[in-house]
C-alpha cells in the first residue's frame, strides 16, 4: 500500500479513536469514572444506526444523530444505575473504584449480550447502498468522502468539546466537580445533573464514533468494542486524563503506530502497541503528556 494511503488510514483511525477516547477521557477526568461499558455503548450505538439505515431512508446525518442519541441514552442509564448509587453509597475510594469497574463490566456485559442476541452473534455491517461512497483525488492522496467526513467530524468535535469545557458555564461546573467533588455542590453546582449531562455527552461521543466507524469498516461486532476500549485507555493515559488536546494527539499517534505495525506485516502484534504504551506511560510519565498530575492517588 502506498504510504499516502496509509496516512489516510491512520488519519481516519485516529479520528475515530479521538472521538471515542474523548468520551472516556471526559467522564474519567470530570467524574473520576472509568466507564468500561464505553466500548459496549459504542457497538450498541453503531448497531442502532445500522438498523435504522436498514429500515428507513433517512439522510446520513439522521443516522449519526440516532447513534449519538442511543449512546447518550445508554450512558445516562449507566449513570443512574451504577455511578450515582456508587457515589451515594460507597465512601471509600478504593472500594468505589473496584465497584465501578465491576458495575460497568456487568453493564457492558448486558449490553454486549443484548446486541449479540439482536445480531445472532454475527458481525453486522452498514447496509450497502445506504451511503454513497465517492472517492476524491486530493492530489497527494485519494480519500473517500466518508473518510473526510470522519476526520472533519473528529477535529470539529474536539474543538467543540474543548470550547464547551473551557468556555461555558456548564463546562466550568464540570471542571469544578473534577477539581473537588465535595466543594462543588457548595458552590451551587448540581452534581447529579452535571454528572448525567457529562455521561450523556460521553455516550454521544461513543455513539458518534460508532456510527461513523460502522460505515467506514466492513463490519463490526462486540469484540470491536473491547479492542477499542483498551486502546482508548492507552490514549487517555498517554494524553493525560481530562486533556482534550492530549487525547487528540495521543489518538493519532497510536493510530499511526498501529497502522505502521500492520503495514510492516506484524498484524497479530497490533494490539501490543496499545498495551506497551499503557505500561510505558504509567511507568515513566503517569500523568501523561498534558495531564494535571492526578494520576496516582495512593
Amino acid at each position: 500500500m502506498l504510504a499516502e494511503q496509509l496516512l489516510v488510514n491512520a488519519a481516519v483511525l485516529g479520528a475515530v479513536l479521538t472521538l471515542f477516547a474523548l468520551g472516556l477521557s471526559l467522564t474519567w477526568g470530570a467524574l473520576d469514572v472509568l466507564n468500561l461499558a464505553h466500548g459496549a455503548i459504542f457497538v450498541a450505538s453503531a448497531w442502532v444506526a445500522t438498523r435504522l439505515a436498514n429500515s428507513v431512508e433517512v439522510p446520513f446525518v439522521a443516522l449519526l444523530v440516532a447513534g449519538m442519541a442511543a449512546g447518550a441514552l445508554l450512558a445516562v442509564v449507566a449513570e443512574l444505575i451504577a455511578f450515582r448509587p456508587i457515589r451515594r453509597l460507597i465512601s471509600n475510594k478504593r472500594q468505589a473504584e473496584l465497584s465501578m469497574v465491576a458495575a460497568t463490566v456487568g453493564f457492558g456485559f448486558v449490553i454486549d449480550n443484548l446486541v449479540g442476541r439482536a445480531t445472532s452473534h454475527q458481525v453486522f455491517s452498514f447496509p450497502i447502498g445506504a451511503f454513497e461512497f465517492r472517492q476524491y483525488d486530493l492530489g497527494v492522496f485519494k480519500a473517500f468522502n466518508i473518510e473526510i467526513i470522519i476526520f472533519a467530524t473528529a477535529i470539529i468535535g474536539a474543538l467543540l468539546l474543548n470550547y464547551w469545557i473551557m468556555r461555558t458555564r456548564q463546562g466550568m461546573a464540570i471542571r469544578a466537580i473534577a477539581f473537588s467533588p465535595r466543594i462543588a455542590p457548595l458552590l451551587g453546582v448540581k452534581v447529579d445533573n452535571m454528572a448525567a449531562l457529562t455521561m450523556a455527552v460521553s455516550g454521544a461521543l461513543a455513539g458518534l464514533s460508532g456510527s461513523l466507524m460502522v460505515v467506514w469498516t466492513s463490519g463490526m461486532d462486540i469484540s470491536t468494542g473491547h479492542s477499542l476500549l483498551l486502546r482508548a485507555f492507552a490514549i487517555v493515559v498517554l494524553g493525560g486524563v481530562g486533556s482534550v488536546k492530549g487525547c487528540v494527539l495521543a489518538a493519532f499517534l497510536l493510530a499511526a503506530v498501529e497502522t505502521g505495525i500492520v503495514a510492516a506485516g506484524y498484524g497479530s502484534m497490533r494490539d501490543a502497541a496499545a498495551f506497551s504504551l499503557i505500561i510505558l506511560v504509567l511507568l515513566f510519565r503517569p500523568q501523561g503528556l498534558f495531564g494535571t498530575g492526578r494520576a496516582m492517588r495512593a
Binding site: I86, L89, S99, M100, A102, A103, G106, F109, V110
Partner: peptide, 12 residues
C-alpha cells in the same frame, strides 16, 4: 451481568 452490576453497587 445484572447480578454483577447489582452486587457491585449495593453489596460492594
Amino acid at each position: 451481568g445484572a447480578l454483577i452490576l447489582g452486587i457491585a453497587v449495593y453489596f460492594p
